[in-house]
Design a protein around this nucleic acid. Structure first.
Length: 308
RNA sequence: CGCGGGGUGGAGCAGCCUGGUAGCUCGUUGGGCUCAUAACCCAAAGGUCGAAGGUUCAAAUCCUUCCCCCGCAA
C-alpha cells in the first residue's frame, strides 16, 4: 500500500525481490493541476505498468474493499506513505502483520511529514525505520533502522529521494529477515517520541521575525512543497534557496537590507537571509540575478505576510 | 467548463489600453582602462514580437481560433 513518489522505490524493490506482490492498494485518482485533470498516483502507474491487481478504496472500512483485500491472501502487507490510517480489520488480516516504511529515526518524527520537519528543525541526520504497524500513528515496534546524513544543501525534495531509495533497500531486508524469523521487534521509547504533522500550504508563509538560520532550514524543509513564500508589494515570491548570515544591518525584520547582483539580503529577527533563488507568481524558478534583470527591487522595501 | 497571470534577441522585463518598421537591465563577442577584477568605459553581434487567420494604407499593438508555460485553488 502506498501512494506518492516516496513509495515507488519500495514497490520497485519488492518487485525485484524474491517475494511476489499479489496486489497493490493506492489512493483514488485525484483531480490535479489547472485542468482539474484526474491523475493516477505514482504507485498506480507502476501497478498498471506491471499489470498487478489494484484497489483504490475511498474508505478503508468499506466491506467490498476488505473482502477483495482478503481474497489476495497476503502473508504480509507493506505500507509506504499510503496516506490513510489502517483500521484493525486490515492490520489483523495478514498472518505476518503489516510492515511500515517510515522516513525518520523513530520514535522521533512520527506522522506524515517526518522528512520536512527533520530539515526544518535543523537535524543533521535522519533515516528510515521499518516497523510492525499497530493502531497508533507510527507507534509500532521497530524492526530495522538505518541512518542517513542530512546535508546542508538538502531540501525536503532531495532528501526524500534519498530516503525513498534507502527505504526500498531496508524494506526488502526487513521482509526477508522477518519471514526467516531472525528479527526481534523493538518497542519504541514513547517518552522520546516527537510529532511531524502534515504540512499545510499556510505553513509556507515566511515569518521574518524568526532568526535567519531557522528560516534557511525552514525554506529547505518546505521545498519543493508546500514552498516558502512571502510578498513584495503585490508580488508573491516563493523563496527557493537562501542562506543565513549572522550580521544584521537595519534590524527591521522583512526589510530588504541590500541588493547585490545575484542576491537579495533580507533582514530577519536575527541576522540576514540571503535569497539567491526564487520563483515569482506567474514565473518560473530563477536565480535572483535573473529576476533582478527585469524587476527593480528597492532597498528599504519590506517583505510582508500578505499581498499589498 | 474552478479562478487568474503570461508567451517580445541567450536570460529577465517594458512597449499593447490611445495601431505607424522594437526598447531596458543582464549576458555574449571585440576593444579600452587598471597591479588587478564577476569592477568601470566604448563598440558590436543577436529578434519570423508563441502559431494561424482576419480588420487596416499600416498590427508586437485591435478581432477570432489554436499551441505552450505559470500562480491560486483542490
Amino acid at each position: 500500500m502506498g501512494t506518492p513518489d516516496f513509495a515507488v522505490p519500495s514497490l520497485e524493490a519488492l518487485l525485484k525481490s524474491d517475494d511476489a506482490v499479489v496486489g497493490i492498494v493506492t489512493q483514488p485518482d485525484r483531480p490535479k493541476g489547472r485542468g482539474q485533470i484526474l491523475v493516477p498516483s505514482p504507485v498506480k502507474q507502476v501497478a498498471q505498468r506491471e499489470h498487478i491487481p489494484l484497489l483504490q478504496p475511498t474508505k478503508m472500512k468499506d466491506a467490498e474493499f476488505l473482502r477483495m483485500l482478503a481474497d489476495w491472501k497476503p502473508d504480509i502487507i507493506v505500507v509506504a506513505a499510503f496516506g490513510r490510517i489502517l483500521p484493525p480489520a486490515v492490520l489483523t488480516l495478514p498472518p505476518k502483520g503489516c510492515i511500515n516504511v517510515h522516513g525518520s529515526l523513530l520514535p522521533k518524527y512520527r506522522g506524515a511529514g517526518p522528512i520536512q520537519w527533520a530539515i526544518i528543525n535543523g537535524e543533521t541526520e535522519t533515516g528510515i525505520t521499518t516497523m510492525l504497524m499497530d493502531e497508533g500513528m507510527d507507534t509500532g515496534a521497530m524492526l530495522l533502522q538505518e541512518k542517513i546524513e542530512i546535508r546542508s544543501d538538502d531540501t525536503a525534495g532531495s532528501l526524500s529521494v534519498k530516503l525513498a531509495e534507502l527505504g526500498g533497500r531496508l524494506l526488502v531486508k526487513t521482509v526477508q529477515q522477518w519471514k526467516a524469523g531472525t528479527l526481534v521487534p523493538h518497542p519504541q521509547d514513547h517518552s522520546r517520541a516527537t510529532l511531524a504533522p502534515l504540512l499545510k500550504k499556510e505553513d509556507g508563509l515566511i515569518d521574518w521575525t524568526m532568526p535567519a538560520a531557522a528560516l534557511a532550514n525552514r525554506i529547505r524543509g518546505l521545498t519543493p512543497w508546500p514552498g516558502a513564500y512571502t510578498f513584495y508589494g503585490s508580488d508573491r515570491w516563493t523563496v527557493l534557496k537562501a542562506e543565513a548570515l549572522p550580521e544584521s544591518l537595519t534590524g527591521v525584520p522583512g526589510m530588504v537590507a541590500a541588493v547585490t547582483k545575484q542576491a537579495i539580503h533580507v533582514e530577519t529577527g536575527r541576522g540576514l537571509l540571503v535569497v539567491t533563488e526564487l520563483q515569482p507568481a506567474n514565473g518560473r524558478r530563477m536565480k535572483v540575478g535573473e529576476y533582478l534583470a527585469g524587476h527593480p527591487i528597492s532597498v528599504g522595501q519590506r517583505l510582508v505576510h500578505g499581498r499589498s
